[in-house]
Each structure stands twice: as C-alpha cells, then as structure tokens.
C-alpha cells in the first residue's frame, strides 16, 4: 500500500491547511463575537435611489 505514503500526507496537508485557517480565524478575532454575526446577515442591504413601480413583496 505504497500509495499511503502519498495519500496520508495529502490528507494531513489538507488538515494542516484548515488548521491554518482556523488559527488565522481565531487570531484575527473572527470568533471574538459569536452573537451579532447571526443577526447581521438578516439585515438587508441599504439600497439607494430606489426605483418606482417595483414589487417588494417577497422581501422577508
């Protein structure tokens, strides 16, 4: 099963890449606030110069 010498490092490498992402995310303060982000996505964007005659019904 020599392919394992190839497959396991790749799987580990992927793990390390994600670990890197994780460390970056934690260090850069991504997870400092775990309450507001979930509310923030609910706010729709501020639209300017709204056009006339539009149908906004489906907006939640």
């Amino acid at each position: 099963m020599n392919v394992l010498y190839f497959a396991i490092p790749i799987a580990l490498l992927l793990g390390v890449v994600f670990l890197g992402f994780f460390i970056w995310a934690t260090r850069s303060g991504q997870y400092d606030d775990l309450d507001t982000p979930s509310y923030k996505i609910l706010l729709d964007d501020k639209e300017i110069e709204p056009e006339k005659g539009k149908n906004y019904e489906s907006r939640s």
Partner: peptide, 22 residues
C-alpha cells in the same frame, strides 16, 4: 444562509455552527 434568511431568524446557535464546521 438561506434557512435564517427565509425564516428571518438568526441561526439557533452560531457557536454550534462554527463547531459543526470545524
């Protein structure tokens, strides 16, 4: 994304979603 948007409610536990992902 779409479940909270469609329900207009924040995800039940954002913390859990992060744990779920990692």
């Amino acid at each position: 994304y779409f479940v909270p948007k469609a329900a207009n409610r924040p995800v039940y536990s954002y913390r859990l979603s992060i744990v779920h992902f990692w």
